[in-house]
Design a protein around this nucleic acid. Structure first.
Length: 430
RNA sequence: GCGGGCGUAGCCAAGUGGUUAAGGCAGUGGAUUGUGAUUCCACCAUCCGGGGGUUCAAGUCCCCUCGUUCGCCCCA
């Protein structure tokens, strides 16, 4: 068009959609607040090395999806591709772990990954996430899952399921990895090309290949669960027990592996069964990352967390609910120089008194202004014309009944309590 | 990064080589300068995402490009 438009993979969230975002944020804020989680805000860009060390250089996220550039001081900086690394960095930097046992934190904001955009996948996308630092206990795993479940449920989402798995500790994983490679190597030629490549690079990921033949082969592969040591096994069993106690249904999916290197023990995903999201059906993903703080130079601090993909969540929400309505108290109609001036004043005064008012600024004919008043959804209409301006009065018209009364502007402002009651009783919006 | 679909006004959308690019919704102005509906009238794309090419002639064919969408990869 010759005009500038939003970059590929970025988009504007227009007022109509923003109401959903606000709803998600307020539900999450409320639930997290009651669970004693504190909000943390970290920078949107960080030193590149943080992500290389934290997420893992072998991962696709780090290897090919980061927005990395040199700033004017020749530092390599990266737009954060996820939230955990920054939160952990901040926790170490400020010694948050030292302030007694367990730190419960949450965050929200934009993340950046250079990848092919699609439905529910943007280059700039948004997450809300939690991190519980300092508890090795399975109860912590269960708590964060329960909170995620609560948020999604409160928002009214349906047709979601929870998959969980355990990746064990470092040793468990190494042993298993070898066993898996041993099993798969004889089939190498039959695997799809991607998986052949992954055999040496990241064999666990072969387990959730979409290729049919690869799936058949993976079907009979050894399960990670058979390779968990006694402690890992016990941890995983306890997490499951707690989830059952909490009434949260889940399924164990031994093929669930996550693409970020820092995960240990519990890994989980909340997945939508609706078709809306296509192949990007994971709404929430997370797990335990016991080694990450130490990896980044902090003290040994077992931790667990998750992130919800907001774009995906909101796609589901929009299919489910009509947008929340903004309840307007008054629509102000005025015509004539004096009346328009008085209307402006009266409007401001009523706004200060706590009412919501839309002042028609078009200057068009009364008929048009009334038509707009009708569409605005306002409970009542305030009308000022030459006559009212002359007498310092105003007409109050109830939209639902079309009843109309004249009263002095002073009276109107004097009886705001009564007005409030009348509006509330006339109010059909929720 | 790879493979397929799509791209006409704010939105939906007809049009498939031939004069001035249907229609609907929304919007704007008006039907004797003050009342929400309906109706009526007028206006609302010098242009079909952008660029190039083929042709006497292109929104309609070809190429490139941008965007979008589906699948793969990966992830939330």
């Amino acid at each position: 068009m010759g005009t500038i438009q939003a970059l590929r993979g970025t988009r504007d969230i227009l007022p109509e959609e923003v109401v959903y975002w606000q709803r998600v944020e307020s539900v999450a804020r409320d639930i997290l607040g009651r669970a004693a989680y504190q909000e943390i805000r970290t920078p949107i860009f960080e030193e590149t090395g943080l992500f290389e060390r934290g997420i893992g250089e072998a991962t696709d996220v780090v290897g090919k999806e980061m927005y990395t550039f040199l700033d004017k001081g020749e530092r390599s900086v990266t737009l954060r591709p996820e939230g955990t690394a920054g939160v952990v960095r901040a926790a170490i930097e400020h010694g948050l772990y030292a302030q007694g046992g367990v730190q419960r934190l949450w965050y929200t904001g934009p993340m950046f990954r250079y990848e092919r955009p699609g439905a529910g996948r943007q280059r700039q996308f948004h997450q809300i996430g939690v991190e519980v630092l300092g508890s090795p206990e399975p109860r912590a795993d269960a708590e964060v899952i329960a909170i995620a479940t609560d948020i999604l449920q409160t928002l009214g989402l349906k047709n979601l399921h929870l998959d969980i798995n355990s990746l064990g500790n470092r040793d468990d994983r190494l042993t298993y990895r070898q066993a898996l490679v041993d099993y798969l190597t004889p089939y190498k030629a039959e695997l799809d090309p991607d998986s052949q490549d992954r055999l040496s690079r990241n064999p666990l990921r072969i387990l959730d290949s979409k290729d049919k033949r690869t799936q058949e082969i993976a079907e009979n592969s050894p399960s990670i669960l058979q390779y968990l040591g006694p402690d890992s096994k016990r941890h995983f069993e306890q997490v499951q027990q707690f989830l059952s106690d909490l009434g949260i249904s889940y399924q164990v999916n031994p093929r669930l592996v996550r693409g970020l290197d820092y995960y240990t023990h519990t890994a989980f995903e909340v997945i939508s069964d609706d078709g809306e999201l296509g192949s990007q059906a994971t709404v929430c993903g997370g797990g335990r990352y016991d080694g990450l703080l130490a990896e980044l130079g902090g003290p040994d601090t077992p931790s667990v967390g998750w992130a919800i993909g907001l774009e995906r969540l909101i796609i589901l929400l929009q299919k489910l609910q009509s947008p929340p309505k903004f309840g307007l108290d008054f629509y102000v109609v005025s015509r004539g120089e004096k009346a328009e001036a008085q209307a402006l004043l009266l409007t401001q005064k009523l706004r200060r008194a706590g009412f919501s008012l839309d002042l028609d600024l078009s200057g068009s004919a009364f008929k048009k202004q009334f038509a707009r008043a009708d569409k605005s959804g306002a409970v009542a209409c305030l009308i000022l014309g030459d006559e009212e301006a002359e007498n310092q009065t105003v007409k109050l018209k109830w939209m639902a009944t079309k009843e109309q009364q004249a009263l002095s502007q002073i009276d109107l402002l004097a009886k705001t309590d009564e007005l409030r009651r009348q509006i509330d009783s006339n109010c059909h919006h929720t």
